[in-house]
Design a binder for these strands. Structure first.
Lengths: 347, 347
DNA sequence: CTGAAAGCGCTTACAG
DNA sequence: CTGAAAGCGCTTACAG
């Protein structure tokens, strides 16, 4: 009877202590760089550590540690594969690394049940804190976690039914700027294409759209507002329908990256991409390679991520300042698609 | 003197046991759904669990568990924000979730030191296994981890200086197909634009390029081969230079997504995007919206990710079958940029 | 400067 | 069916 290769167990502090002829407490001191160990013991312990390839078990360490920190952080994103989410993930990873913290990430897919399940999975693994892009319904269940000592910072969207540190983009202002830009190009009939109304950012962007019309004393035509678009296919269909009307818009404002992609696809299918203006919210990779290149309102992803991490670490350091709300301005990047002039152009 | 809100400690099994009047062993049995606990005790424990909002500490649990599993997995990607990496991440997240496993992900950025640091961080947190997109140098240090009982599966690229379960794309075949496609359109002078030669996939793709020229009895012109392109800017510059020659290529084969983007940018700058053909390796979001739309060789990301997870869980289940090497075919997606005909076209 | 004992929150191995 | 004791790998609190 042949046995597979028996996996030799990972060495423990006890093994290192035995090999170097000291107590495990001394090994612990050396491993943690505590002062007050004699140089020769330090050397003997380090030798043994190398010889055995000892790697401390951080989970056991944090179990007993007085601060109880696991050096771990949970990140809940809409979808790790979405360009905005993954860019945010990268920024947060880098900031967390500076603190020696490793990141668990998960995709929520706008599903409140999944949000709760992911939070439970992260809490069960005793993350030190959570950074959450919340899904529209109700985050009140998170206040328990905050009270239990796990700080939570919300990013991209504010939480519902609870208050907490939050870092968001000025969605109303960004949408308003984008719309004002289109109006300046001579567009009076601009359609709004939006994501799920349950998503706060979508609602805010539509509010910015309305505000800009108001600013310009333009009438709001409710039939030019299409919302609850979840996929680029739905957005494409919506634009095909809009443009088939007897009174189509001369420009589009799209409230999210997937929606923008679907809208552009529809305009190209209709051969209207050079005559109908479009400005979209959210940056899109390759936006500058399209023809015309896409004029977009881009969020400050680095600002969002780094501020969220900073707020989280301030709480972890014991800050009990009042709840922080940080709002970052987005940037309108002019590239061509938003500068197609409309019927009221004075140029 | 005012005190901040004292964070009430998370309840432990001891607290639940006290409240329900049983031993912690009984609480453990109920929490783990072990058979053989009387119905009324189950109910009392569940009541107390709810009342206290008890959430088991999985890290403590796995410390004592005989299998020692942390229900955690470490994923090393080139960059969590890269479209290919993040798509792979999402597939792996979903497969891992089916096993109740949560994913740590990190970005290596082609830096061997960072690869080792990330592995160390994941091992210190006692992940059950690792899925690694290796960086070209040397993965031999990982055999220690495998021997210590932490299985490793390599994905997208094979490891260097060690052997291990690996899931990769048929890069040679994919590149060969792409090149054969260009040759069929009448191109005899095709430039190859490649990533770092230290990246195995880049080397394989250049081998496929050469093989296809051979298949077609075409002369290889070394001056049409540009490698070690790391960014889209470098690729753009390289193409500008190539096209300024007295004998420029009539088509381009680009070996990676960022390189393709740079190449397209150059062609557009030169106004050559409708006359010079291009086929790229790796899918690119929005490829179908460019003009012409991009003909690309796309990897089977779902296959790569799901196979990697399957192999990992087979090892975790104790499989000691020989090392597995899985090679998945990529798919040439014809969209326009690769069908621009060349000087030797018979059409 | 060093170490033996106790304990972090849980599961194992065993006794009743 | 239930629980007291021991122990996972580490750190704390304390003694010398």
């Amino acid at each position: 009877m042949t046995e597979g290769p028996v996996p030799r167990q990972r060495p423990t502090m006890r093994d290192v202590a035995a090999l170097s002829g000291v107590s495990i407490k001394t090994v612990s001191r050396v491993v943690n760089n505590e002062a007050g160990v004699s140089p020769d013991l330090i050397e003997r312990v380090n030798d043994a550590t190398r010889k055995l390839d000892y790697q401390r078990d951080l989970t056991a360490s944090s179990l007993r540690r007085s601060d109880g920190k696991s050096q771990t952080l949970g990140l809940l994103l809409e979808n790790v594969a979405n360009p905005f989410s993954s860019a945010l993930h990268r920024v947060i990873e880098d900031c967390a690394r500076d603190h020696g913290v490793t990141v668990f990430a998960g995709s929520v897919d706008e599903d409140p049940g999944r949000e709760r399940a992911l939070v439970a999975a992260f809490i069960a693994r005793r993350v030190d804190g959570l950074i959450v892009v919340p899904t529209g319904e109700d985050q009140s269940y998170l206040s328990r976690e905050v009270r239990s000592g796990t700080p939570v910072v919300f990013v991209d969207r504010p939480p519902a039914l609870m208050s907490g540190d939050t870092v968001v983009t000025d969605n109303v202002g960004g949408a308003r700027d984008a719309m004002a830009h289109l109006v300046r190009q001579g567009h009076h009939r601009v359609a709004y294409l939006g994501d799920l109304r349950s998503i706060v950012t979508a609602t805010e962007r539509s509010a910015g759209y309305r505000a800009a019309l108001d600013d310009a004393n333009l009438r709001l035509d409710p039939s030019l507002i299409v919302q609850d678009l979840r996929t680029s296919d739905q957005a494409e269909a919506a634009v095909l329908e809009l443009m088939a009307r007897t009174d189509p818009p001369s420009a589009l404002f799209s409230g999210q990256n997937l929606v923008t992609i679907g809208a552009v696809r529809a305009l190209r299918r209709l051969g209207l991409h050079r005559s109908i203006a479009i400005v979209g919210f959210d940056d899109i990779p390759l936006a500058e390679l399209l023809d015309p290149a896409l004029t977009l309102v881009a969020q400050d992803v680095v600002g969002l991520g780094s501020t969220a991490v900073r707020l989280l670490f301030e709480r972890l350091a014991g800050s009990d300042q009042p709840v922080q709300h940080v709002v970052l301005p987005p940037t309108l990047t002019v590239r061509g698609s938003g500068e197609i002039t409309g019927p009221y152009s004075t140029a």
